[in-house]
């Protein structure tokens, strides 16, 4: 099935309108306008230090833009919006080592009744394939499994928008491929809106319905590329698809043109 991506300009779930952020005289991002459509996977890709994390902090309401605005489901983002969950890059720092897996996942759900909370935790843990590991501590697990816990924690809150900040930057290539497929499977099942930030070109094209390419700082949107590769995708078929190679080449050229030696996208 080929995705038709003509809807980008309608019914956008998350809209960035001319977002700029400067720290003193230092301009991190400059007038970023982008739209993240509902129920799709969007990926922001850019060279290191291009302000991707700044942008995610602004989107998640943890930071405010110097100029411009962020709108989520039609209302401006001032604090952390309802229905937003996040997976951080460094699982070892974002998970709580004094809590077992189940408690880590349950912790953001403290406002729910115990029965409902337990149900949500189980559902999320099952979804990431960690059933039976509930009683382990995060540090008893491999990096890939820890990042699964972080994903489960985000899913347990039943988010409408899932933000992921370089989620697989700290795991090995094989684990990374598995986690990419896990994300796509979960997204297809739940239909949630996903926004991933990465510096890995391969990953951006493989995951995305559309890729937002950022330039070097002060960053602007170099181009938004629709990825019309069929789903479900897999690492062999999709990545050898001439269309994949073509889009990857295009993104690579854009990032090279951004004036920095960019990741060539190979593992």
């Amino acid at each position: 099935m080929t995705e038709t991506l003509e809807i980008v300009n309608t019914k956008a779930e998350l809209v960035l309108d001319g977002v700029s952020k400067s720290y003193g005289a230092n301009l991190a991002v400059r007038s970023i306008s982008a739209e993240v459509p509902a129920g799709k996977v969007s990926v922001i890709v850019g060279p290191s230090g291009c302000g991707k994390s700044t942008l995610l902090r602004i989107i998640s309401g943890l930071d405010t833009p110097t100029e411009g605005s962020v709108t989520f489901e039609g209302s401006p983002v001032t604090g952390v919006p309802e229905g937003l969950a996040m997976v951080f890059q460094d699982y070892s720092r974002s998970l709580f080592p004094w809590m077992r897996v189940a408690k880590n996942v349950a912790f953001p759900l403290r406002h729910l009744k115990p029965a409902e909370r337990a149900e949500r935790v189980q559902e999320a843990i099952d979804a990431v394939g960690l059933a039976g590991k509930e009683h382990l501590y995060p540090w008893e697990m491999s990096g890939g499994m820890q990042q699964r816990v972080a994903i489960a924690r985000a899913l347990a809150s039943h988010p409408k928008l899932l933000l992921m900040d370089e989620p697989y930057a700290s795991v090995d290539a094989q684990t990374r491929a598995d986690l990419e497929d896990l994300l796509l499977a979960i997204q297809a099942r739940l239909g949630i809106t996903v926004l991933v930030v990465t510096h890995d070109i391969d990953e951006s094209v493989y995951l995305a319905d559309h890729v937002i390419v950022l330039s070097a700082p002060p960053s602007v949107v170099a181009e938004t590329i629709e990825v019309d590769l069929p789903r479900p995708r897999d690492h062999v078929t999709t990545k050898t698809d001439p269309r994949f190679v073509e889009i990857r080449g295009h993104v690579t050229r854009l990032l090279r043109g951004a004036g920095r030696p960019a990741d060539d996208g190979t593992h």
Binding site: L62, V80, F88, D90, R93, S94, F107, P108, R110, R153
Partner: peptide, 17 residues
């Protein structure tokens, strides 16, 4: 560490918790 406090902020953990 900032990362843990940031996680707490995103997941809307109240001050007491």
């Amino acid at each position: 560490g900032a990362a843990r406090m940031q996680a707490a902020a995103v997941f809307k953990i109240n001050r007491w918790d």
